[in-house]
Each structure stands twice: as structure tokens, then as C-alpha cells.
Write a protein that binds this DNA or RNA. Structure first.
Lengths: 216, 216
DNA sequence: CCCTGTGAACCCCTTCACAGCT
DNA sequence: AGCTGTGAAGGGGTTCACAGGG
């Protein structure tokens, strides 16, 4: 739960609704009913209505929900109505892939700088972004206005690095490194564990078919 | 829920326990109590015991859990005690990164082949794996014994492709493409939506600090 | 009529707390 | 004493079903 009284599960679904809505807007749809929106987002109509209602009343009984308006409202709730600056730690294969990924911009995120330990890679630019040495972290952050970091580096001393980032004002992490980060009250980590997801699929396959939910 | 009566949440945590256990085994630890194991996995001791107990009784009252034995048991449950073959769809930046990622092998997965639409990329090998043309899908799959696909291709006609894969015996998907796949009873999709996770972090940052859980 | 928003029921998952054992 | 495994309680999230309204 977040102070506003909204569960994180609702927030996760909000991101799905927003994507579906922006697709609908691209197709020129103006209004949509909860049935259709829910079906596109793979949830039940009741759940969709409840999720939205936890933020206020956006629906119109006669026409349903106004696509563009609702999309913008959700954008405001998620804080992606203006662009959010993000930094990248680690410019290996994965880091480079993330730097060239165009999907971030259209969802409101911009990688503004990257950092690496390896001095072979630093002090130059890649895909238009400056790559700093890791020891320039604090000084570079002063001018960057970035508060989310993507961790795509090696596993060694990761927790130490996270503490350093937290001290420098970065408290939110998208973590690709297969290391469990020590949870403290002032840091927020979203893990991306691809192998774990494969293991989950493998379990489902091994233990017969599950007819039901596919959460996330 | 899966037929065995085990919730998918439990399965997700199982993958964490297995990783922690294998790290402990590498350090030579022989036995571990639920307290320590739970702390390393960021769950409560009660939850850990309940999760394990839903598969049987593995603990020893005097010494706790036998690290190597439990790790192997979980591996069997997840179906990763023997290597699982996986295919990759799409050999762009992301696809290439995945092909060179060493983390899969040590968790029991092997990408055995890749497919791409672009004939510039096909009919050669990359990182030791053959890249097939997408229209060779059915014939190649006959000899591959692969039942999980990683989707890292472009978004166009993705649902059609998924149906084709399902017909060819691949029903489990790890999806990196920002497109919602139509859920049918015989396919199982795990989405990796990086932007969605960033949006979630952005929400947490925007709406004050949440002291509590960090699920996944 | 068929929509939205919502109290209330329901259900699943987590946590508590203790019996049984070493 | 301190551990595991588990019945029972508790809490959160989802679904039901309907009031209210165009």
C-alpha cells in the first residue's frame, strides 16, 4: 500500500490500462466501456472499475470512459506526465541494449547518463549519452536531476553501490543484476529476474496445466 | 493455482529460495534454519516454512534444512534438474544480448536456436546458435525438443506468431514485446515490461514513500 | 435497458501461535 | 531451550450484485 491508500497491485494494472488506452487513442477511439477496456487489459470489468474508482470518478454512465482524458489522468497519477530522468549503471551488452531502446521515451522516461567501472568504456558517449566513470557518480548526479537508476552492472559490491546512490539522492532502482539487494526503508527495488520467470514457466509446464490466472 | 494445489506466488518464491540455497551451497554451508534462509530471501520464517511444507516435509528439527538436498528438491519441483531447451524469436539488440547472457545455463536453461524475419540475419550462427528464417519454424521445431519461447521480436503480428508456435508445440512464452498477448487456455505468458516497472517506481516516488512490501 | 460506482461477501494468502519433537 | 510443521486467526484483494442514473 502507498499512503494514498492504493495497493501496488492496482498501480501495476494502472500501467496496463494506460498502455491499452494509449493504443486505443492512436486508433481514434474516443470512449470505451469497462467491459472492452477490461478485456483488452485481461482483467475483469469489476476490477477495472474498482481500480479506477480508488482514484476518483472518471466514468460516464452513458458513454463509458473518455479515452484520452483517462489516459492523461493515469499518466498524472503515475508521474509520467512530464519526463522522468533515469541513470544507467553498467554499459555492457545489456546496458547498451537499454541505451538504444526507443520504448522508454514514449512511456515518459529518459536515460540521461550512464556509469561504468571499466575506464575503457568511460569518458565518451554512446547513443548520445555520456558515460561517466563510477567515481564521478556524486558529482555528476548533482546536475542531472535523476532519481531512478537502472542497475545493469556486474554483481560485485552491488549493495555498497546502492547505498552510495541512495546517499546521492537516488532511492528507486530497476535491478537486472541477479543479486538480492538488502531492503532498507528508504530504497525501493523492482527486480527483473528473467531466469526466475523461466523457472516459473518451467514449473507450470512440469506440473500440468493451470487453467487460471496469470498474474505478474 | 496449479493442479498440485500450490499457488503461483509460492512458486515465485521457490525460485528465490533456490537461488539463495545455491549461493549458500557454494559457500559450503551444509544446514540452514528457516530464520536465516528467510532473511536471505526477504520473507518471513513462517512463510518460508509454509511454502516448503506445501510440497512435503524437508526440515530437520535439530539442524534445519539440508542446503544441497533442498536445493535439488526445489530444482526437481521447478523442472530445472535437467536442462530445458528454449528458443528465441527475434535477433535484434535484445535478442543478441540474450544469446550472449551466461546466466541461463546456470539456472538450467539453454537457448538452442533463434529465429528472425530479416533474411539478412538468418542462415548463419551467432554465439554458437543457428539463426533460422521464421518460416522454418515448424520444421526446425520438430528436431529441437523446445517448449518455451522467448519473444524478443517486433510487435507486428505477434499474436499470429504465438498461435503458430502453440500449434507447433510451444505453449510457454517469456514476452519482452510491449504487446498484450491474447490469453487462451493453452498458452502461458510471462511478461517482462520494463517500462511498466519504471512507471511503478515513478508512482511510488510521486506518491510519497511506501514503508511496506516490495512484492514482484 | 445497460452503464458506473460501491457495500458486502467471498476467497486466498500471510501471520500468529503452539503442539510435538530433539 | 529452540526448531519445524500446521490449525486457526487475520488481512487484503477480488468478485458479486445492486443502487443510482442517463
Amino acid at each position: 500500500m502507498v499512503p494514498g491508500g492504493v495497493s501496488l497491485k492496482t498501480v501495476e494494472r494502472l500501467t496496463v490500462y494506460r498502455k491499452v488506452l494509449s493504443d486505443l487513442a492512436d486508433k481514434g477511439t474516443e470512449y470505451v466501456f469497462s467491459h472492452r477496456l477490461a478485456s483488452l487489459a485481461s482483467v475483469t470489468p469489476a476490477q477495472l472499475r474498482r481500480d479506477l474508482a480508488s482514484f476518483g470518478s472518471f466514468g460516464n454512465v452513458a458513454r463509458g470512459y473518455h479515452v484520452r482524458e483517462l489516459s492523461e489522468t493515469i499518466g498524472r497519477l503515475l508521474g509520467t506526465d512530464s519526463v522522468r530522468n533515469v541513470i544507467l549503471i553498467g554499459v555492457g551488452n545489456l546496458g547498451k541494449t537499454l541505451l538504444t531502446y526507443r520504448g522508454f521515451e514514449e512511456r515518459g522516461f529518459r536515460i540521461v547518463a550512464a556509469f561504468d567501472r571499466d575506464s575503457e568504456k568511460t569518458d565518451r558517449t554512446f547513443a548520445g549519452r555520456r558515460i561517466y566513470r563510477i567515481d564521478q557518480l556524486e558529482s555528476a548526479l548533482e546536475t542531472l536531476d535523476a532519481h531512478i537508476a537502472i542497475l545493469a552492472c556486474g554483481p560485485s559490491d552491488l549493495n555498497e553501490l546502492v547505498s552510495r546512490l541512495a546517499s546521492a539522492g537516488v532511492h528507486h532502482f530497476l535491478n537486472f543484476v541477479p543479486v538480492l539487494i538488502n531492503r532498507t526503508p528508504d530504497i525501493f527495488v523492482e527486480d527483473v529476474d528473467i531466469s526466475a520467470k523461466l523457472e516459473k514457466l518451467s514449473f507450470i509446464r512440469t506440473n500440468g496445466r493451470a487453467q487460471d490466472e496469470q498474474d505478474e
